[in-house]
C-alpha cells in the first residue's frame, strides 16, 4: 500500500456556470492557498473527525461536510496561520452536530466524553506526518496476506460479509483478525516512532 501524498477537496459552488467563466488570477491564488492549507491539515482533520464519529463511513461523510464549509467560508480567516485552529473548530462543530442530529444514540458516547476527546485531540500534536510514515512502514512489514486483507477491508464500499466469504472466514472471524492486525499496526507504529525519536 503506497500512501504517497494525496490530497482531496470538494467544492459545491452553488451557482451553475454560465459557460463564459474563467478563473481569474485572484481566484486561482485563493484556490491554491486553500488547497495548500487543506492538504497540510487534512490528515490531522481526518483523524480528529474519526475519533468523534463512531463509524468510518460516517466520518467520511462528516469530512466531506467539513471540506465544503472550509471551502465556502475560507474568506472568513484573515491569515493562513489561523487555518488549522479554524479548521479544527469547524470539524469539531460538524462532528458534534452529527451526534446532535442523531439524538441520543445509545451506541455513541455522551457529550461529556465527546467534548473531552475533542479537546484532547485538538490540543495534542501527535506528529501526523511521522505517524503516517511509520504506519506505512509497518504496513510494508505485514505479511502479504494480512496487508492484502487490510487493503481489501478499507476499500471504499466494500461489503465485509462478501469479503469474509471470499477469504473463507466468518464475519466475526474476519472482524477479530482485522482487529488483531490493527493492534499490531498500532504497536509497530509506536515502536517505530520511539526508535526514530531515540536516534
Amino acid at each position: 500500500m503506497h500512501a504517497g501524498v494525496t490530497h482531496e477537496f470538494f467544492a459545491a459552488n452553488g451557482e451553475a456556470g454560465n459557460g463564459v467563466c474563467y478563473v481569474t488570477p485572484a481566484e486561482q491564488n485563493r484556490n491554491d492557498v486553500f488547497l495548500r492549507l487543506y492538504v497540510a491539515n487534512e490528515e490531522a482533520l481526518r483523524g480528529f473527525v474519526r475519533s468523534l464519529v463512531p463509524t468510518l463511513e460516517d466520518s467520511r461523510e462528516v469530512m466531506q461536510e467539513v471540506a465544503v464549509v472550509l471551502w465556502r467560508k475560507f474568506e472568513d480567516i484573515s491569515k493562513p496561520e489561523d487555518f488549522r485552529r479554524w479548521a479544527f473548530g469547524v470539524a469539531r462543530f460538524k462532528a458534534l452536530d452529527f451526534h446532535r442530529k442523531r439524538g441520543r444514540d445509545r451506541h455513541c458516547f455522551g457529550t461529556e466524553l465527546l467534548e473531552l476527546l475533542a479537546s484532547e485531540a485538538e490540543q495534542a500534536d501527535p506528529g501526523y506526518d511521522l505517524e503516517r510514515r511509520a504506519l506505512d512502514e509497518c504496513l510494508e512489514k505485514l505479511p502479504r496476506p494480512q496487508r492484502a486483507l487490510v487493503e481489501a477491508a478499507y476499500a471504499p464500499g466494500v461489503r465485509m460479509d462478501a469479503l469474509a466469504e471470499q477469504s473463507g472466514r466468518t464475519p466475526m472471524s474476519l472482524y477479530k483478525t482485522l482487529h488483531r492486525i490493527r493492534i499490531t499496526l498500532i504497536q509497530c507504529t509506536q515502536k517505530t516512532l520511539a526508535m526514530e525519536g531515540a536516534r
Binding site: 466520518s59 476527546l117 484532547e120 485531540a121 495534542a124 487490510v150 498500532i186 507504529t189
Partner: peptide
C-alpha cells in the same frame, strides 16, 4: 485517539 487516527489513515488509503 491513536486507534481512530490509524483507522482514518487506513480508510484514506487507496487500495
Amino acid at each position: 485517539l491513536r486507534y481512530a487516527r490509524m483507522d482514518a489513515a487506513l480508510g484514506g488509503q487507496t487500495p
